[in-house]
Amino acid sequence: MEQKQLDQLSTDLFRPAAGRGDLEQIGRPSLSYWKDAWLRLRKNKGAIFGLIVVIVLTALAIFAPMASKNDYHTQNLSLSKLPPKIPVLEKVSFLHVDGKDKDGFDVYKAKNIKENYWFGTDDLGRDQWVRVWQGTRISLLIAVAAALIDLGIGIIYGGVSGFYGGKVDNIMMRIIEILIGIPQLILVILFILIFKPGVSSIILAMIITGWTGMARIVRGQMLKMKEQEFVMASKTLGAANSRLIGKHLIPNILGPIIVTTMFTVPGAIFTEAFLSFIGLGIAPPQASLGSLVNDGFRFLQTYPYLLIIPSIIISLLILSFNLLGDGLRDALDPKMRK
């Protein structure tokens, strides 16, 4: 545009536009912390996959054993080592869930068995479908219980340490440092040797060293919070306080706690399985995912489904918790919030 055109601009345009500017600019609509976190989590495909799988597997672990007319411990040798047979999926050849053994021999027909064992049966004729979900239930129970107790101890210990600070904090942290130096495995093994394998002794063994991580995190957050308190007290009074606590402190402290707990669960599932392998796991006839995988190895060459199915479930479970944990960490990190 030339000078000429500039001159043709209406003089009206050159009136002061008082009040048109939004000096009181509208900030970005302030979503609540949790809503914001949820929005971010929802965008993370891996985390949503993890969340769904965790929910589905948990539901199966709770309801599948109840819904079946078989139970996990009744043996029936006449039904032993039946390959898996799943009604509709049996048509899909590569899944090998057609009731035929590895030589293509239809065991169900031969033995004239009408019932379908979806995951087959084990060497003692127990319904593997029920055993797998019962095992998942035990594994989840152990892992979630260990994670929750870790959380409880960690919050108390870390809270006290961080709250009092100074000498108390110093001593309490030294104790943790020494505990961390002791290999977890050693403690767990010694502990179970003494108290004999079982759900509660396994949980306890995992807690002995497990709580330290949570305690450190809670302490760190506690120290940070104490710093902020001064700022808060001087800046805001009365009603605004509760809002600040809700908006800043709780998310700051809850975020890392939730994420740590999320990562404790898969770790505990793994440790439980590991104990089964070294002969310190759940005792039969009870089953956990670890003990099922361990037992499965005996039939690797002959009845691989006894190994493969629980292996897939345990991997899927650990994977899902890890994905969910990763997603939550990204979603809950207040630093990422612009």
Binding site: P266, F270, V293, S315, I318, L319, N322
Partner: peptide, 15 residues
Amino acid sequence: AVLGISIPSFVFAGF
């Protein structure tokens, strides 16, 4: 990496 961290060594060994 996520798979490597999640799949237990014994499962990997079995497969």
